[in-house]
Design a protein around this nucleic acid. Structure first.
Lengths: 310, 310
DNA sequence: TTGTACGCGTTATCAT
DNA sequence: ATGATAACGCGTACAA
């Protein structure tokens, strides 16, 4: 990789002239510009981003630090964010952090690099953000403690509530929520939305944890469950298979509603309906965080139910 | 973010002394070192990687450029590579490139950054690597044209062959390979291994494309297929559901073998067996590429079949 | 139109 | 034990 100084020497000009040619700045003759650009092309010259970032104190990199890679949901979101960033000249780079400690370490590393912004997906609501972060930071799925983060989130209560409405409109009454046992905003709020709406309709909220999946089958049988609202599509698919294997017909006996509309899973079956997660809208919100215009943005779209054979 | 110069001024010493304290170098009294380290801690000082990389011409960043994020397989591999890199002090960063052109652009960007090494997953075998890359580069799944890339790959022919052996040992003879229609090394070689071993056993190779999934059901019915070897676990799960929905019993009527052992899918059902993809071994090979010791490494492990209810 | 000089933050070397 | 100085590659302001 050639440097701008080397390129200048090669062309018999000064570094300043090279810079003028490269940045289409004025004060240079067409002839020398052409000559320099051709030489640059020939030698595959590229300005070193590290040097530029050092100069300007700003980088075009947006760092996403996430707890795990093998989450279809997170990857869908990351892909959407990337598609929003790229046309604006930003590069999204993704790094997994196995533990909260590792996450802290990586955040500090990127902060030292003075990346343009950060998108953090904490392991849970307990994550403590390192102090002194000098760029826009957004967290997703779980809140960060400390620091002035924007917390990007869908209205999970409304989603949980919408699920109940949906089932009721289908004539189901014995509606169970299958979710995780985790101190995470999305998990807690969605369950709260479910619970409140159930009570409002005079129905008994019943939440079971996905961690002991054995209990699902028993519960469904013993309680005559006729509707199952799952925290995500993977859980929905998993439940679908468990129930089907034991002779329970979906959606005849029990109706299943997932969430996120993860293509990876929903394309596998048309028995489960799902709720579209507002990826695009959240990506837009994140862009607003970058530009400093967060807060004056468009309202969240209402939960949209993707109805399949249910 | 404070700089080393600012830190020096804060402590009333020179930049050189700060550096000695930070890097545990000799030529500094314990007292001043302690004082400086405490001040650094207090102000959250971190050396700027961009500046260091500019100085040393080397970075600890390993860039992975991949065609898509929503691939459980790629994410499993990326996770394994990351776990191998991190303890060695390297950072794996992952960037998706929607198109080959975008991939070229990103590779050039990382090259200009003088990252430590690159792991490239091309869209297909036609990808042309940019010239002048100055760091170790490995490609995965598909070969790159041009450049001196190490091509990381499992022995796909052996895998395809092992699948046939497995089914035959189970008493199946009418074995079909369900795969993609893509000019990618993994796809082509695995199919070749399947085909050759089928012929060796006097059986007729039958390959159907996953792209027209409608044909699968018809084909299975018309040809009395009793074994299905799928290119990956997603395809296997997809096939399983299609067949089950039409009354075909798995594994009684037809046995299904997937590949990769992607937890995301295999945990969803125990009807399909799968072949373990050698993630760990390949990550080890990549580390060897980094250290320049590639080629003297351990041989690939033989295909290991994860047998489930089949 | 072109060249020169300085600074970004680090690190390494040479002098004190 | 500590300070001064140079260099990495780039961008910019100023001088020629």
């Amino acid at each position: 990789m050639i440097s701008s100084l080397e390129l200048a020497k090669l062309c018999g000009v000064s570094q300043g002239t090279v810079d003028r040619a490269l940045h289409e700045r004025c004060g240079i003759s067409q002839a020398t510009r052409k000559r320099i650009l051709e030489a640059a092309e020939l030698h595959g010259y590229r300005s070193n981003p590290a040097a530029r970032e050092l100069m300007t104190g700003q980088s075009r990199i947006v760092a996403a630090v996430i707890p795990q890679l093998n989450s279809a949901f997170l990857m869908d979101f990351a892909g959407t964010v990337k598609s929003a960033l790229y046309p604006a000249g930003f590069h999204l780079i993704i790094t997994p952090a196995d533990t909260p400690e590792e996450m802290t370490e990586l955040i500090n590393e990127f902060a030292a690099r003075r990346c343009h912004a950060m998108l953090i997906v904490p392991h849970d609501d307990g994550f403590k953000l390192p102090a002194g972060l000098d760029m826009p930071v957004a967290s997703f799925l779980s809140r960060c403690k400390g620091g002035k983060t924007v917390f990007l989130h869908a209205d999970e209560k409304v989603s949980g509530s919408a699920a109940v409405d949906y089932f009721i409109s289908q004539g189901r009454r014995n509606i169970v929520h299958l979710t995780y046992n985790r101190q995470s905003h999305a998990v807690q709020e969605r369950a709260a939305g479910y619970r409140e709406n159930m009570l409002k309709h005079g129905l008994k909220p019943q939440i079971i944890s996905a961690d002991d999946s054995d209990s699902l089958l028993e519960f469904v049988k013993n309680h005559k469950v006729d509707a199952l609202f799952c925290h995500n599509d993977w859980l929905a698919l998993n439940a679908l298979r468990t129930l089907e294997q034991h002779g329970i017909k979906v959606p005849q006996d029990i109706s299943i509603l997932g969430m996120d509309n993860s293509l990876l899973f929903t394309s596998l079956c048309d028995e489960i309906s799902t709720i579209q997660y507002p990826f695009e809208w959240l990506a837009g919100e994140f862009m607003a965080v970058l530009s400093g215009s967060y807060g004056q943005t468009t309202p969240a779209p209402p939960p949209s139910i993707i109805k399949r054979r249910t």
